[in-house]
Structure formats: structure tokens, C-alpha cells
Deep mutational scan, measured.
Amino acid sequence: MQRVNMIMAESPGLITICLLGYLLSAECTVFLDHENANKILNRPKRYNSGKLEEFVQGNLERECMEEKCSFEEAREVFENTERTTEFWKQYVDGDQCESNPCLNGGSCKDDINSYECWCPFGFEGKNCELDVTCNIKNGRCEQFCKNSADNKVVCSCTEGYRLAENQKSCEPAVPFPCGRVSVSQTSKLTRAETVFPDVDYVNSTEAETILDNITQSTQSFNDFTRVVGGEDAKPGQFPWQVVLNGKVDAFCGGSIVNEKWIVTAAHCVETGVKITVVAGEHNIEETEHTEQKRNVIRIIPHHNYNAAINKYNHDIALLELDEPLVLNSYVTPICIADKEYTNIFLKFGSGYVSGWGRVFHKGRSALVLQYLRVPLVDRATCLRSTKFTIYNNMFCAGFHEGGRDSCQGDSGGPHVTEVEGTSFLTGIISWGEECAMKGKYGIYTKVSRYVNWIKEKTKLT
């Protein structure tokens, strides 16, 4: 034993070699072989497995989906700052455009905790909710729209109204504003409101030439003092309507412009014939205590009207009353817009006519005020429907199939267009061939041609 100890002390290297040989010859039971080890760690190889990531292109799944990435790591994937920024906006807080917040056709661009709407022409605001041009839906104005110097929408209202708090709607500024039905039992019968379409306001006024200088022999019209197929109006439903009495009662109609003036057809009036105007009328054979009678003290036909040349060209006249009318729910003026808007309103496509005229061709006159909704007829169809001249200051309205029309005794009465609950004068009943005849239409004086003249002559002093 002493000898062994001496050998170990003198030859430590020998001992180490012996131990190493023993270990190498022993069977290893701690580690699995290569094949079995792979069965336990069965993990798919990654895209760049075996390579240094710093030297390969980034992978979106590896960089940002398996674990949260930084902007720089995302930049490695896209290799483009702009594309990385677009991805980053949604990656950080989701897609803010998912709810489609942009209105009126706006395009949404996502941002971090926010979004941006790219608005089409005519709109602005956070969600493109603000109209900035009158060309689109009248700028959301209830009545009139004008573009300011910086191309912003400025709404306005006709006389007797003021802008509401929203700067879009119009509200009454006087007790009985024009064009409004205020009798409670008839307010439910107000005709369907007309909503502004998209309009090209630059070209809204037709490029028409008034044929002022045409000389033409007097034409022989049949029954051209021209509501057939209409309905009984309720008291106060058309408070701007008046009836004219002269040699015979209810020979023509008219509309209240203001307390002192009536507008009617020029062919209705004769110099030297006494005319009485009755406002607030409903049943011409009954006294309903809503009527107001006034005498006409002055007749002003349009300066281009000449019955000797043509009885229905420039067929418009103004009547001055001896005493002002007292405005109330049964006696209310009709609204008159400017030339541009009167023309736009007419193009809405349908209007209402009213009167006490004959209820059928050569038949009896109506006792109760009649009204009828009539569609506008395109000019080409209008011209083809008659052998008589249709001037540019006239328009056609009615039904091709016949059966409904204005008729004798309705002449001078109103053709009105309702705009968001307020009625505007767009025409004056003038003439036609018979009444409600198939293929024939009622012919009306186009008020847009005469609004400046009306307003100039009827100013209240």
C-alpha cells in the first residue's frame, strides 16, 4: 500500500490518463441519441435557420407576430419608411378606419389613436360632414345658397324668414311668412316636400332668348283662358290664391305678392273693366268669414305684352289694390325667389296649380277651390304637342294621358313649387288646347323671366 501511494504521488498524470480511459469505455446513459432527441424537440425550422439574422431580410411573422416588435424591426421587413409607417399605425392600436367614419364618399386613412378623412370636392370637416359648395344638395341650405369668396357655403332665406341657429334652416321672422300653410287642420295635408338634388348652379339658368321682337298675326285659340281631375282644397291650404270678379264672377285667378299687390295673367284683364279681388276665398257660393274683398285701382301688364300681336306672350300683369290686405292664416303671400332659384325650383319637376275653373272641358265651374299636382314636361315634348308657338318664356306641365289639367277660369292662378315646406311661385296658368285632352298640356308663363320686374313694381313704400 505504501508503494502504491508513492507511485500516485510521483505520477499524477498517469492516474488522470487511467481515469479518462475508464470513462470513455463506459456506456453513456444520461444523453439520448440524435434521433430520439429530435422526437422530443420537434420544432419547425425557421426561415433563416442556421444563418445569422443580421444578414437576412426581415420576416413579418418572425419579427412582429411571434413577439412584439419595434418600429426598427418592422422597418427591416418593409425596407421602406412609408410602408412601415402605414403598417405601424394599425399594428400599434388597430384600424381606426374600420367603422368607416368618413361621410359623403370620403376616404379614410388610419393613424395612431386617430384617423384622417380625405374629402371629395365640396366637403370638409373631420368626417367630411361639412358642405362647402352650393353645387351639392344646395349646400344643405333649406332655401338659398351662395358661395363666399373663400368658396364656403353661405345660406340665406327669402323675405319674412331668418336663418336658424344651425345656419342652414329657415324659420319665420314674421307672423305670416310667405308660402307657408298655417291653418292647423290643413298642415297635415301639406304636399310632399321637395329635397334639393345635386345641381350645376353655374349652368342652372337656361341660355334662352326671349323672342321679344317676333311679330306674329293673332292666333285663334280655343278655350285658351284655361282644375280638371283635381281635388277639393281645404280652407287655408292655398292662402296665396285669390279669385278675380268682373263682368262675371271667378273669371280668373291670381296670387298675393304682398298686402297691396296681386300677380295674374295679362290676358285676364281689360282696361276700363272694374275688377274686384277676393282673398281668403274657399267656396265661392258661401260666406265663410275668411274672405277679404278689395278693388283694383291700377293694372300693370308687362311692358312687352301686346294682345294685338299675341294674347299669351309675356302673359303676366300686376294688380294694385285700393287697401292693403290683412295677412292671416287664410290670406298669405306666395314666396318669389330670384331668377336663378325660381328656375331651379321649376326644374324640380312638379308643381301645384289651383283655381275655381271648370271641372271638365266646357263644363261647370268649381264651387270649392280645386288643386292638382302636375309634372313638368320637357321642352321637346311640349313643342311636338301643339302647332302653336311655345315661346321661351312659357313652359308645359300636365299629363300625356289627359284627364287632369287646369281649365277655363283658372287662368292667372299660381303654379307653385314647394321647397322644404315653403311654396314659391314658378308659373302662372296661361293657356292650353281644350282641357285635359290626351297628348295636350297646360301652358304656363315662366315666372323666372319676370321676377325682377315683379319685385321692382310691387315694392311697398
Rank of each mutant, 00 (worst) to 15 (best):
Asn38Ala: 09
Pro197Cys: 14
Asn306Ser: 08
Lys45Ser: 05
Leu41Trp: 12
Gln185Asp: 14
Thr218Glu: 09
Thr458Arg: 01
Asn203Cys: 11
His34Cys: 09
Ile344Cys: 10
Thr332Phe: 06
Leu318Glu: 00
Ser385Val: 15
Met437Asp: 12
Thr85Arg: 05
Val227His: 05
His415Glu: 00
Glu288Pro: 08
Lys440Ile: 03
Lys234Met: 04
Glu27Gly: 13
Lys293Ile: 04
Leu20Cys: 04
Ser423Val: 14
Phe121Ile: 04
Ile390His: 13
Glu288Leu: 07
Asn147Tyr: 10
Tyr341His: 07
Lys387Asn: 15
Val77Gln: 15
Leu19His: 00
Thr209Glu: 10
Tyr391Ala: 14
Leu20Pro: 02
Glu434Ser: 13
Phe87Met: 15
Ala366His: 12
Phe348Val: 14
Thr276Tyr: 05
Asp131Ala: 02
Cys134Glu: 02
Ala164Thr: 07
Val248Thr: 05
Gln185Asn: 13
Glu10Tyr: 03
His289Asn: 11
Ala266His: 02
Ser255Val: 11
Ala380Asp: 14
Val183Gly: 07
Asn127Val: 11
Ile443Gly: 03
Asp212Pro: 04
Val377Arg: 08
Cys396Ser: 01
Phe196Gly: 11
Gly272Pro: 10
Trp88Ala: 15
Val199His: 05
Thr417Asp: 02
Glu35Thr: 11
Asn222Ser: 13
Arg379Trp: 13
Arg373Gln: 15
Leu52Asn: 15
Ser182Ile: 08
Val374Phe: 02
Glu124Leu: 12
Val416Tyr: 11
Thr84Asp: 09
Gly254Val: 00
Arg43Gln: 13
Arg162His: 07
Arg83Glu: 05
Asp405Tyr: 14
Ala233Ile: 09
Asn295Arg: 10
Tyr91Asp: 07
Cys69Ala: 08
Asn135Ser: 11
Asn147Leu: 10
Arg226Pro: 07
Asn313Trp: 06
Lys89Gly: 09
Leu318Ala: 02
Phe224Gly: 09
Phe348Trp: 10
Gln2Cys: 10
Gly246Thr: 08
Phe348Glu: 14
Phe345Cys: 02
Phe395Gly: 02
Glu420Ile: 12
Leu346Lys: 03
Gly13Glu: 02
Gln237Leu: 10
Pro235Phe: 07
Ala337His: 00
Cys119Ile: 01
Arg449Gly: 15
Leu325Tyr: 02
Arg180Pro: 02
Ile284Lys: 07
Asp338Glu: 07
Ile284Leu: 08
Val277Gln: 00
Asn295Trp: 04
Glu61Ser: 15
Arg449Ile: 13
Ser49Ala: 03
Tyr330Trp: 13
Val248Phe: 04
Ile429Glu: 11
Gln143Val: 00
Leu60Met: 12
Phe388Leu: 10
Pro414Phe: 15
Lys362Leu: 11
Gly254Phe: 01
Glu53Ile: 06
Gly106Ser: 13
Leu52Trp: 07
Glu420Val: 12
Gly413Lys: 06
Asn328Met: 02
Cys134Asn: 02
Val181Gly: 13
Gly254Leu: 01
Gln96Val: 13
Val195Asn: 08
Lys126Tyr: 06
Phe78Ile: 13
Thr186Cys: 07
Asn166Asp: 07
Thr290Arg: 12
Gly236Val: 07
Arg226Thr: 10
Gln143Lys: 00
Gly363Ser: 12
Trp431Thr: 05
Cys69Gln: 08
Ser329Gln: 13
Arg449Met: 15
Cys97Ser: 03
Asn245Lys: 06
Ser114Asn: 13
Val4Phe: 10
Ile284Thr: 09
Asp111Ala: 07
Gly355Val: 12
Thr426Gln: 01
Gln237Pro: 07
Lys39Trp: 04
Val257Asn: 00
Val242Gly: 01
Glu66Thr: 06
Val248Gln: 11
Glu270Val: 06
Tyr201Ser: 08
Tyr312Cys: 06
His314Asn: 11
Val273Pro: 10
Ser156Tyr: 12
Arg62Ala: 08
Val326Trp: 11
Thr276Trp: 07
Gln219Tyr: 06
Glu340Met: 06
Glu165Gln: 08
Glu73Trp: 04
Gly280Lys: 02
Ile7Tyr: 05
Cys117Thr: 03
Lys387Ala: 14
Ile214Val: 12
Asp93Pro: 15
Pro324Leu: 03
Tyr47Gly: 11
Met8Leu: 10
Ile17Lys: 01
Glu72Ala: 15
Phe399Ser: 03
Gln2Lys: 06
Ala317Asp: 00
Val263Ile: 12
Gly254Asp: 00
Ile429Met: 13
Gly105Asn: 05
Ala250Ile: 07
Lys455Leu: 10
Asn48Arg: 05
Ala250Asp: 05
Leu325Cys: 00
Gln219Thr: 09
Val374Met: 14
Glu10Ala: 14
Asn166Pro: 02
Thr332Arg: 14
Phe224Trp: 11
Trp118Met: 11
Tyr330Pro: 01
Tyr444Arg: 01
Ser255Glu: 02
Gly253Trp: 07
Pro197Val: 09
Cys435Tyr: 02
